[in-house]
């Protein structure tokens, strides 16, 4: 039986893993390779690395650390941040990344999703979406790595999910910004709505604070994977403990 995935997210800024609250006030939490190895050893099912500043600054992820990560871990990982072209994506995949994720560049140029899917296959192409409630609607935000540049993308979240899936995205990471970093639980309503129309794997992001939040998002929103950062980085939840808890609760999990 297919297991639900537990996915630690490592936000990378200037070569370090960082974590902010609601995307602001980033603090350094550690070295990329050390954390990657630690999470793989603890039982993480997959890792996501977001170079959170690259997209806003118009820079790309450095393939050097992608390759360094690929050498030390034996679980899949995805890299995101400033991937604007097929060549940018190829460099990261050849360096050993299993998937690449696009966010702001896909909003600037939606055809990028089609081009990436045609070149590498949908299974490599993840679209990250930063979504926040504005005027009682879920809307997409852009350039969220830099609070001074973050702005509305002019798209409704659910419509954007449908569009990128039609264009060939093989997986969606839906980051619910109102919940990000506050550890009050995932945005079940929004994730349920996304699940209804998303025919590819869906990863929930934003809001994990307690172990039961993971159980709820798997059981109630039927997501394929749950992403979290601060609860793992700060040691508030151990991945081994979390997996044991979820198995006890009847969730399909890789021990």
């Amino acid at each position: 039986m297919l297991a639900r995935r537990i996915v630690p997210c490592l936000d990378v800024k200037d070569g370090q893993v960082v974590k902010g609250v609601k995307f602001r006030n980033h603090e350094v939490v550690g070295d990329i390779e050390d954390l990657a190895r630690r999470y793989a050893d603890e039982g993480a099912d997959e890792l996501v690395f977001y170079d959170i500043a690259a997209s806003a600054r118009g820079e790309t992820v450095a393939p050097e650390w992608v390759s360094a990560v690929a050498q030390v871990i034996d679980i899949p990982f995805c890299v995101a941040g400033g991937i604007r072209t097929v060549d940018d994506a190829r460099a990261r995949l050849f360096a050993g990344a299993d998937k690449i994720s696009v966010n702001s560049p896909a909003l600037e140029n939606p055809d990028l999703v089609d081009e990436l899917a045609a070149e590498f296959g949908s299974q490599c192409v993840v679209v990250g979406i930063d979504s926040k409630v504005v005027d009682q609607a879920w809307v997409v935000h852009q350039y969220t790595g830099d609070p001074d540049k973050t702005r509305l993308a002019g798209r409704k979240t659910l419509e954007w999910i449908s569009e990128v899936v039609d264009r060939g995205a093989g997986e969606i990471v839906l980051n619910c910004m109102d919940q990000d970093g506050v550890r009050d639980g995932y945005d079940i309503d929004q994730l349920q709505a996304a699940r209804e129309l998303c025919s590819t794997p869906l990863i929930a992001s934003g809001g994990a604070g307690r172990m039961d939040h993971f159980k709820t998002v798997f059981n109630d929103a039927n997501v394929d994977a749950a992403l979290a950062a601060s609860v793992f980085h700060k040691g508030l939840i151990g991945i081994g403990d979390l997996k044991a808890y979820l198995i006890d609760e009847g969730v399909s999990i890789r021990p």
């Binding site: 297991a3 949908s122 590819t200 794997p201 869906l202 394929d224 994977a225």
Partner: peptide, 10 residues
């Protein structure tokens, strides 16, 4: 079931 088949299976 979503497509593609992605993740850890037994």
């Amino acid at each position: 079931l979503v497509w593609p088949h992605m993740g850890w299976n037994t």
